[in-house]
Design a protein around this nucleic acid. Sequence first.
DNA 1: GTCTATAGATGGATAGAC
DNA 2: GTCTATCCATCTATAGAC
Lengths: 231, 231
Amino acid sequence: MTTQDRRLTDDPAAAVGWQPRRLAAVAPVLPAGAAPPGTGGRILHAALGLFSEYGFHGTSIRQIAGKVGINPATLYAHYRSKEQILAELVLLGHQELYDRLRSALAAAGSAPAERLASLVREHVLIHADYPLLAVVANTELHVLSARHAATALALRARCREFLAGVLAEGASNGEFRLVDPTLTAIAIGGLGMQVGHWFAPGTGYTREQVADAYVHLALRMAGYTTPSTEA
Amino acid sequence: MTTQDRRLTDDPAAAVGWQPRRLAAVAPVLPAGAAPPGTGGRILHAALGLFSEYGFHGTSIRQIAGKVGINPATLYAHYRSKEQILAELVLLGHQELYDRLRSALAAAGSAPAERLASLVREHVLIHADYPLLAVVANTELHVLSARHAATALALRARCREFLAGVLAEGASNGEFRLVDPTLTAIAIGGLGMQVGHWFAPGTGYTREQVADAYVHLALRMAGYTTPSTEA
DNA sequence: GTCTATAGATGGATAGAC
DNA sequence: GTCTATCCATCTATAGAC
């Protein structure tokens, strides 16, 4: 190994701790009442922060314990394995998503445009409220075994049905002009998922501003154009 | 550990090898001429397949070597470290993206709508052509040290400028009616990035069909509406 | 360039005292 | 529930023969 080569490995920026970030937000926040009280909850929060930043495989049990301030062994008094901590977070994230989307739809009227707006708004807001949880639930789900992932996948499928259903309603009653039902659903669903990666409070946009803009974009994508949405 | 507990760990589905997939595509393909010939190239392809499926930290040197059919030690005759293999892939992916977007813009006319269409089309096509590379370049970049990531980040920034520039042109000449320049750019840019996760040849859509649909969606998002795009 | 062999560190998880 | 101590598997990377 030459001196030149070694310089590439002994990265000065790495020594300073700088890394390209996976997401912008910092504080690991979980939905109220979702985390167990006491040490169990603190473990969940610590794992959320580390998983979102370094990924499941890039995070060690010792790092999690270190952040909580407990001994690595203590962790196993609360969770059976590292994978189970992830499973808890992934399930929790999908459960919150499903619950909030369902409530949003229930609170909306019957017009497809209004229902789509309600759905997209809530989708964006939850990703803005819990960006770390959203990123972990979306990007680390594949690590889980089939059994641990099953419930989350089922919830995700039902969320997709919400969106597909609303788009189909609007297409059949003429409010929407869809380019392609499937591709439009994928594209609109992806709008919200992105938010978790870049959104952070106090960086130019409020959660409501982002939601307003994305609702507007989604309505355009669905082919719903009125004078008011084009103002 | 109780019997019930053990059943959750000794997952039967895991024994069968089933896992939730990170992406749909299977064959690890790199742009022509991008990979070195011989073993060096085969290592790159093997690593691409494994990184895209299990992530950088979820993949071992032994797995890569095993897939190539060489001894783990032989790998170090071609690359200095596991991280350098990833760095090669990430750089390669961003270089291809930048080159193709630049060519697409150069080949397009001067009308912002045409330029945006050309940009989005090419963005979708590259993600459809190299879905594994796109996923790895996008989701594992943060693993790299600042020095290894710098070039890729610079290329990505220039790609963002392409899009932001075209949107600004269209906004100022009146072809576009932007909801918000920044959020629209993020949303349109995200359209293509998604494609790598679900697209696979022979699963319902051709690469051109996806590109057509997404170009149409992007024009709608930019607020460019004509009778022809609403047909 | 490729191998065998192994160093050296770190990983997840457990045993058992308190 | 929390600790100390530790097992043992696995990991990245290197040394050195061919």
